[in-house]
Write a protein that binds this DNA or RNA. Structure first.
Lengths: 191, 191
DNA sequence: GGGAGACAAACGAACGTTCGTTTGTTATCA
DNA sequence: TGATAACAAACGAACGTTCGTTTGTCTCCC
């Protein structure tokens, strides 16, 4: 029973998400797969490369979800609802990559970290765009700031990974419904 | 010119906030103070003790702010506004301790980490209490869930440290005003 | 069909480095 | 003079990584 490069990357995602990049040694990672740390170098160039691979997968998942949501027909509010639902799906279905993407990017070397910053900005731009549309068509308050209020929305979404318990009392659809009410209320309400 | 224990803890707060606990060595920390790493042991028991001290200061600051805000006269909405403004003050005035408290607690050993979890829960309970009061007196929607929506509010607040730029275009009072509108809209609005 | 050669996967030991920490000594100042 | 602060050197452990070697599997040719 042999291991593939993808096995190693998946295990790295699990370990980095649970213990952090610096908290995970190559020997830990090997043990997770029933191997020695040194054996991982048959599949992978090094530890940093593993982090790059996991983070890249996280970035790609978010971007794909945003592209899908932006193609939604209907009002700006509809597209924002789609962005939120898509974000929740990514977080809950790919938790390890998401955690690593959100929390371990600072352990990347300069070049790879710059790519993450750019990917994150492109993703956030999707939210800013929808907010601008919603302000224009009157769905949202005119004093809404696409940048600042966009950050508020993303702050809530990016935190889900830290507290949400899949086997807890709140199921996925209730989570999305509560997010929709809170966020759209925050943007439209009389505050 | 001699250094005090408090100097070392303050420098540790700065370094842990900037580079993380694992990303900061005792030699780095000594250099920050013009000392050797080994010289720090004249003032402090060890690296882990430094983290405990910094995190404890962060926890204390948040709790004191919550106690003050809860003593505010007026409606539940007034007290929530006070909680938010108090949180912003703590974050902006004690950024290093806050960053360390929020991001580096996972590097604490089990005992100290348990204390952090408890402190955080006590702080969040202040928000849940105000939310319950606001639901009861009709300020907030009856479907508001004190736990889940409380997490939403705290997600926004805890993220401020990550993006807010003191010398940027948004000053403190505008930040607080935008937080108030967004959060109270999210809890009261028609969604 | 069966041995020879090629290949990838994994091992186990060792490398150089960095880490947190300890120890013993020196200098400073009340 | 005696405590305090800082230094300098060293410790053992852990780290990421490299190396030479072994093991198992697949392919090709006789």
């Amino acid at each position: 029973m042999s291991h593939t490069r993808e096995d190693v990357i998946a295990a790295a995602g699990r370990m980095f998400a649970a213990k952090g990049y610096h908290g995970t040694s190559m020997r830990d990672l090997g043990r997770e797969l029933g191997l020695l740390g040194s054996s991982l170098y048959s599949h992978v160039g090094g530890k940093q490369e593993l982090l790059v691979e996991v983070v890249a997968r996280g970035a790609k998942l978010f971007q794909a979800a945003a592209d899908r949501a932006l193609a939604t027909e209907g009002t700006a509010a509809d597209r924002l609802r789609a962005l939120i639902a898509g974000h929740v799906d990514v977080v809950l279905d790919h938790r390890d990559e998401v955690r690593t993407f959100l929390n371990e990017a600072r352990s990347l070397d300069a070049e790879a970290r710059a790519a993450v910053v750019e990917a994150r900005d492109r993703y956030e731009e999707a939210f800013r765009t929808v907010l601008r549309e919603g302000i224009e068509d009157g769905s949202f308050r005119p004093e809404v700031d696409p940048v600042v209020d966009g950050i508020f929305v993303l702050s809530i979404l990016n935190a889900i990974e830290r507290w949400y318990d899949v086997s807890g009392p709140v199921d996925r659809s209730e989570l999305v419904a509560r997010l929709h009410r809170f966020v759209l209320g925050g943007l439209a309400g009389g505050g």
